[in-house]
C-alpha cells in the first residue's frame, strides 16, 4: 500500500517555508495550511508583497540602509544633524534607535559584524563607504551601536582604530542596568560595566 503524503505542490510550499529562519517542519506545515485556506487575495497579496519588496528595495548609496529610493529618507532629511553618524550592524537596529526619539543624526549600516569563523572580514562589510563619508570633514562624532557580543565589540574597536587618524570623536553606547530592572537580577558582568560607566546625578 502506498502511503499518502501531501500533493507535490504543497510539499514544495512547505519545503520553501522551511528555509525561512526560525521555521521548522511543523511550523512550515501550519503556515502552508494557513496559506491554502486563506482568502485568495490574502495569499496573492503576500506573494505580491514579497515580489514588490524584492524588486523595489535597495541599499541607500550613502548609508547602506534599506530603502525604496536611491537615497534613504534619513539621508534625504535636511532637518537631521549631519555631524553625527550612528553605526549599526543591521537595518533593524536603526529602527530601534529611531524609536527612542533621542537621536537626530544619521546612520550607517554595516550589514553584519566581523567574524572570521563565518568568513566575514572588513571588506565584506559596508565599511569602505563609511570611511568615505568621514573624509569631507563635516562629521564630528561617530557613535558605535554594534551589538555587545564579542563580534560586535571587535567590529566597533576595528572601526574606531580606522577612524582615529581622522581626528573624529568615536563613542560607544553605554552599558548598563536595564531600566526598571532589579539590581539583584543583573548579571555581574553587566553590573561591573555599569559601575565603570556610572554618571553623576
Amino acid at each position: 500500500m502506498a502511503l499518502y503524503f501531501y500533493p507535490p505542490s504543497v510539499e514544495e510550499l512547505i519545503a520553501a517555508l522551511t528555509k525561512l529562519p526560525g521555521v521548522g517542519p511543523k511550523t512550515a506545515q501550519r503556515l502552508a495550511m494557513h496559506l491554502l485556506h486563506a482568502r485568495e487575495e490574502d495569499a496573492a497579496g503576500l506573494a505580491e508583497a514579497i515580489l514588490q519588496a524584492r524588486e523595489r528595495v535597495r541599499r541607500c548609496h550613502i548609508c547602506g540602509n534599506l530603502t525604496d529610493e536611491e537615497t534613504c529618507p534619513v539621508c534625504q532629511d535636511e532637518q537631521r544633524d549631519t555631524t553625527t553618524i550612528c553605526v549599526v550592524e543591521q537595518p533593524g537596529d536603526c529602527i530601534v534607535v529611531e524609536k527612542t526619539g533621542q537621536y537626530q543624526g544619521l546612520y550607517h549600516v554595516l550589514h553584519g559584524a566581523l567574524s572570521p569563523m563565518e568568513g566575514i572580514g572588513p571588506n565584506d562589510l559596508n565599511m569602505a563607504s563609511l570611511m568615505q563619508r568621514l573624509q569631507n570633514g563635516n562629521v564630528q562624532e561617530v557613535i558605535m551601536a554594534t551589538n555587545t557580543g564579542v563580534e560586535g565589540e571587535a567590529t566597533a574597536l576595528y572601526l574606531a582604530r580606522q577612524i582615529k587618524p581622522l581626528n573624529i570623536k568615536v563613542s560607544r553606547l553605554a552599558y548598563g542596568v536595564a531600566v526598571g530592572g532589579d539590581l539583584e537580577y543583573t548579571d555581574e558582568a553587566t553590573l561591573g560595566r555599569a559601575l565603570q560607566g556610572r554618571l553623576s546625578i
Partner: peptide
C-alpha cells in the same frame, strides 16, 4: 555567576582569532 560569560566570550574571541590566523 559572571565567570561563565567571561569564559564564553574568551572562547569565542579565541575561535575567531584562530580562524583569522588560518585564513
Amino acid at each position: 555567576s559572571g565567570y561563565y560569560l567571561y569564559l564564553n566570550n574568551y572562547r569565542r574571541a579565541l575561535q575567531q582569532r584562530n580562524n583569522l590566523l588560518k585564513q
